[in-house]
């Protein structure tokens, strides 16, 4: 059986300590700039904070994975190189990368540090994954959330590296690392700036009839009836009009969360090495409850005991949740 490592989000130093205390095997985090895909105000780490975080995590037996998983635009690669340099100096346990230029630089300049391939690289076939393994010595791939469990099992047999899958949190619909929707509307790029539906461009507009529009960069992403709860304007989770859908519909996906709690044993059996919990933008209390619940479940699985999944299932109870692509390819 594989190790079933629990990889947890650390948007802030406080969240990192919380995740470590709650039993994370590894935490992932980034610097306060465009070098990672959660470049949100108030999130992430200064080099000083990361130094303390690495020490704290290592004392608690947890690894620190540094996300350098955006794509530097030409002329700005120095920022990513500096981030790698700082991360290596502070003793992070792995870099999570997507860009081939960043991967090549890190592989050559910091050969001792593990490389993980970010979901932002969108490697969804054994051949693509092997390309990154053979080119840069990638030791683990974070799989896109588009594969069924049998497909993951099949991939596992054909690649020389570990597999990490998302098991909980926000459920992205577009192929990660191939989406410019936010940039089309706001001028800030998910790939180059690490920004998706930035709060600075969000506006909620109440109409005379009581309905509420949620807007991004002045574009109406959804409109809610007076008795509906207005959601955050993420472009791929908005409602739109199409020729056959004059009533407005979720053209891409409903605003649901991924929760694979019930599938953990199957994922372990499929050869998944690490479970990733999404949510660097989430609160400390969220991190505590999610990480603790997954910790218990993973420990049970490791001990060969059927896990009690009630707590995990309860985490998204009352909200819309999905098993996404993992259960059936009808999702596609």
């Amino acid at each position: 059986m594989t190790q079933a490592e629990l990889v947890c989000p650390a948007g802030t130093p406080a969240a990192l300590r919380t995740a470590v205390d709650a039993g994370a095997d590894a935490v992932y985090c980034g610097f306060r700039n465009a070098t990672n895909a959660r470049n949100f105000p108030g999130l992430n780490f200064t080099p000083e904070e990361l130094a303390e975080a690495v020490a704290y995590a290592h004392r608690g037996g947890a690894k620190v994975l540094l996300a350098l998983n955006t794509y530097p635009p030409a002329g700005k690669t120095a920022l990513w190189r500096e981030a790698a340099e700082t991360g290596a100096r502070l003793g992070v346990d792995a870099f999570i990368v997507a860009d081939m230029g960043v991967a090549d630089h890190v592989a050559r300049t910091h050969p001792g540090t593990r490389l993980h391939l970010s979901v932002q690289a969108a490697a969804s076939s054994p051949e693509a994954i092997r390309y990154y393994c053979e080119s840069f010595g990638v030791r683990r791939v974070v799989l896109p959330r588009i594969l069924t469990i049998p497909e993951i099992r099949a991939i596992r047999k054909e690649i020389p590296c570990e597999i990490e899958t998302f098991v909980f949190g926000n459920h992205g619909l577009m192929v990660e690392g191939r989406c410019s929707l936010t940039n089309y509307v706001t001028g800030q790029s998910t790939n180059m700036d690490g920004v998706c539906s930035p709060a600075s461009d969000v506006e909620y507009v109440r109409s005379a009839d009581g309905s509420m529009s949620s807007c991004l960069g002045g574009v109406t992403i959804d409109r809610f009836a007076p008795d509906e709860k207005a959601g955050y304007p993420t472009i791929c989770k908005g409602r739109y009009l199409a020729p056959h859908r004059a009533e407005g519909y979720y053209a891409f996906e409903e605003p649901v969360s991924l929760n694979l709690a019930r599938m953990l044993p199957e994922l372990v059996a499929a050869g998944v090495h690490a479970f990733k919990i999404e949510g660097r933008q989430r609160s400390k209390s969220y991190v505590r409850s999610v990480v603790s619940a997954f910790r218990r479940a993973v420990d049970d699985i490791r001990a060969g005991v059927a896990p009690d999944l009630a707590d995990l299932v309860a985490l998204t109870e009352g909200q819309k949740e999905t098993q996404g692509a993992f259960r059936t390819k009808k999702w596609r």
């Binding site: 619909l173 410019s180 056959h244 891409f252 692509a325 390819k329 009808k330 999702w331 596609r332």
Partner: peptide, 21 residues
């Protein structure tokens, strides 16, 4: 038209209540 995103899911099929397969 600018290519803005790709997905594993077919949104054309979805609009018509179908799946990719």
């Amino acid at each position: 038209r600018a290519p803005l995103a790709v997905s594993a899911r077919c949104y054309h099929a979805r609009a018509h209540g179908r799946t990719k397969d």
